[in-house]
Design a protein around this nucleic acid. Sequence first.
RNA 1: GGCCCGUUCGUCUAAGGGUUAGGACACCACCCUUUCACGGUGGUGAUACGAGUUCGAAUCUCGUACGGGCUACCA
Length: 508
Amino acid sequence: MSKKVRVRFAPSPTGGLHLGGMRTVLYNYLFAKKNGGDFIVRIEDTDQTRFVAGAEEYIFNCLEWAGLTPDESPLHGGAYGPYRQSERKPSYRQYAEQLIKDDYAYYAFDTPEDLEKMRQDFKTEQNPSPQYDHSIRMKMRNSLTLDDAEVKKLLNENVKHVVRIKMPTDETVSFTDIIRGEVNFDTNLVDDKVLLKADGMPTYHLAVVVDDYLMKITHAFRGEEWLSSAPVHVLLWKYLFGLENMPQWAHLPLILGPNGKLSKRDGAKYGFPVFAMNWLDAKTGELIEGFKEKGFLPEAFINLLALLGWNDGTDQEIFTKEELVEKFSMERVHSGGAKFDYEKAKWFNHEWIKRKEVRSMMSDIRLLLQEKGIVIENDIFLEKVIALVKDRCNLLTDFYEQSSFFFKSPEQYDLGAVKPKWNDAKQLFFAEVIRNFELSIDWKAHTLETNFKEIAAVNDLKPGELMLPLRIMLVGGKFGPGVFDIAEVLGKKETLSRITNGLNALTK
RNA sequence: GGCCCGUUCGUCUAAGGGUUAGGACACCACCCUUUCACGGUGGUGAUACGAGUUCGAAUCUCGUACGGGCUACCA
């Protein structure tokens, strides 16, 4: 009987959630759902100095927007809580002490100044950043160098101390990464990482192992930046819970910006968002733009994220969430980092806008237009407008410039496109069009076009020279859907009023 | 500096020893469209380099170069 699949996303609530983080969430979610497992969100808030108010709530908002709802989390509950590491504090010390008892770890009493001195003293050209490792530890103040009585005394006096792992010498730590295959590390080159900090909080290294065990995590997926510290985690599993219980690891490749690492801070300099949703940096007061507010559909967002480093082996690129769940496999995730291409991201969104039902976008677009000061009187009209312009929009926010003229008649006309060729014959033609349209019973694009062209023929005018003027009168500029489609949606009254106004502007 | 990971069109990628190295975005051309888009058709464009293994290498091995990550009492 195989264990139920349980995976976790473990962010530290220190700021906005960027593309890489969102993709880690996605892959965790897809893997869990594909295998009938649970997707857990655990908040890694063990660094009290980096706490950022609102960051946790923000993370859950992003997940909710993207449709990646956890099965267990501080917000959604679950049987393995608490899901915030700061609330799990008591259990970590016990495991750290267990390690010390088994001679896999030790107390270290070095002050920050001692550590700084060590780094200076042992710094050489060959080794610019000396580590607290097997070659150094016997020269420091810790329970390996101090005698037992002294250690006991220091502990009794509550002298500030940490617990460090005692990395073995001359061993090779190996594990199999689902994406990368076997990875090996020489333990001589790994430092004695701090497991328990002086404030009693665990570091990530201890916490991740203990909590993954306690929460029965079967597969651990995280960013590539964790690969270097994996040997520490593997060893802790071996010492504490047994390698046979260790989750299977997969280290996801990084998502890169146009020139290297995707910086969390200023997505603005790239000209595209890096966060899932708007994030207001409380310290700087700076608002960092998100994909949601930029006008991305959640369907498109997870689709493009999924394809950044994964594909199903076919040419298919557009996937619904359900299809992704069905087809996703961690083995097919690329091992190389992927440079993010905003143009392609917009293409994904365009494809989704085209596919998506008008009605399901109505409320978002209504809100968006209202924020721009557009008054929407009735939904049937809005629905027709959206249907007419949606294929021309890459972003939801494009709906404003593509459709605003439906809601307010032109205030300015692109007269340059029309006026030079304007003459009395055209003037008379449009007067006749107004009379004809006024009598029209069947206000349909096709009928209007037929009538328009018949009048042109009778007056011996070329329709081509008349349609642009009509467009300018209705729209104001040289853009938009078919001009008679516009007239149909606008309705008789509004169309005639716009032609009349346009005519006035032209003859001025 | 050390360790680890990576490297196919500009970008995302397919091809797990035998293909004219395929697709998508972007770009260009043409078509459609009496607007601008959408759309359609076609085109430019890649296996980082050097050895080796093999009848045969993008694919396996080694080296070099380049890129990235880590090298905190941060995650």
